[in-house]
Write a protein that binds this DNA or RNA. Structure first.
Lengths: 208, 208
DNA sequence: GCATGTGAATATGTTCACAGCT
DNA sequence: AGCTGTGAACATATTCACATGC
């Protein structure tokens, strides 16, 4: 398989899931795994896992399985998890603070660089080692610290403004936890995460 | 289009997005919209929206557009949003509390029925009108209040146990915010929501 | 004339079956 | 024998093009 093939989006998400399973297994002293072990750990079908991994080039030993260290390295490389990625959170409400101190992000080598809010009473409060700063300084601070990833956890009505400030400050990758649709200049990537949509999809399956 | 066709999963999620846009437009006094207006509001391609809506049967007037009231009703009916759905949150950390008081869920007619945590210091604290209860009472309380939807916002290591208690109490639909893979009996539906996967997918697109 | 609804064409993603390496 | 890696078959989802109804 060509070393530089484009990986399908759902495959990327599954690779992240596999990556976490590898971290856990490694902590448990495991050295290698086969695709069936991974199915057990993640709930993803073994054949699907092999197909996903095939996008990274040959990895495993037929008849044996995968070396955890190798596999981790290859996935990390491809998902850009091998280099520390700084990110900023805009909106220090409960959700923003939950994300700010979420340990799973550290394992994926994300580094909280800044935290912003409009609420004057919150300014200065420290979460996970980072002090909450006034929203007015978003652009200036993102630029100064060369932060390229912004996470929006503000109310929907403030989302577009927050996104614009972030882009102004040089952010190009935005994770939008807001239900609002945000418009960004070409070259910016937005990924929307909607809780309520997840609830709604689940609700559809609830029997009447 | 047959009135009872199976709607593709991604389509369900988009319908939820459209539904929210309709709520907003209605608040702004709007009476009707066409598929291009909806594209503007949601970022979803007009042609995709029409295809999604076609799963609900004929809805719009050619040359005119869609009546917001009608459309809302039809979507709500199909997504099961027209009847109040009780749900419980297991794990009253920052994320659990954020979800507990998230206003978007009320608009989708979800009703927080119970909130649980193992931490004795949190027991009794009231969030969004609901007192936090001890985790030991999950099964008993879910059953008593006939709650069928459980939301897991506990640490990964506690996820399987929490799920089992919820199922024991009669829950059949589980929204898992934990990175852990959880096993449930046949007939239970689990939907996984992973923050870190969203971060990881975004990271993949960050240029080196 | 204008916007919907839909079959047909395309693109994307998943599953299968098995050849080939260890 | 055991498990990977992959082309080929299948399934699902999106886009297009246009006939139809207002």
């Amino acid at each position: 398989m060509p070393e530089r093939s484009k990986i399908p989006d759902p495959s990327l998400a599954r690779l992240a899931t596999v990556y976490r399973a590898l971290l856990d297994s490694q902590r448990n002293g495991r050295k290698s795994l086969n695709s069936l072990d991974l199915q057990e750990l993640t709930g993803i079908a073994a054949t699907q896992i092999r197909k996903d991994l095939s996008h990274l080039g040959e990895m495993g030993k037929p008849g044996v399985g995968y070396d955890i260290g190798d596999l981790k390295r290859r996935i990390a490389e491809r998902l850009n998890l091998s280099r520390r990625q700084k990110f900023a959170i805009i909106g220090a409400g409960r959700l923003g603070q939950a994300l700010a101190s979420y340990p799973g992000l550290v394992e994926f080598s994300f580094k909280l660089a800044a935290l912003f809010d409009v609420d004057k009473k919150k300014i200065g409060k420290v979460v996970n080692g980072v002090a909450i700063q006034p929203a007015a300084e978003i652009s200036k601070n993102l630029r100064r610290h060369r932060v390229r990833i912004a996470v929006l956890t503000v109310p929907a009505s403030a989302a577009q403004g927050a996104a614009e400030a972030a882009v102004q400050g040089g952010a190009r990758w935005i994770l939008n936890f807001t239900p609002a649709h945000i418009a960004v200049p070409a070259g910016c990537v937005v990924r929307n995460v909607s809780f309520t949509n997840e609830f709604a999809v689940l609700a559809h399956f609830v029997e009447k």
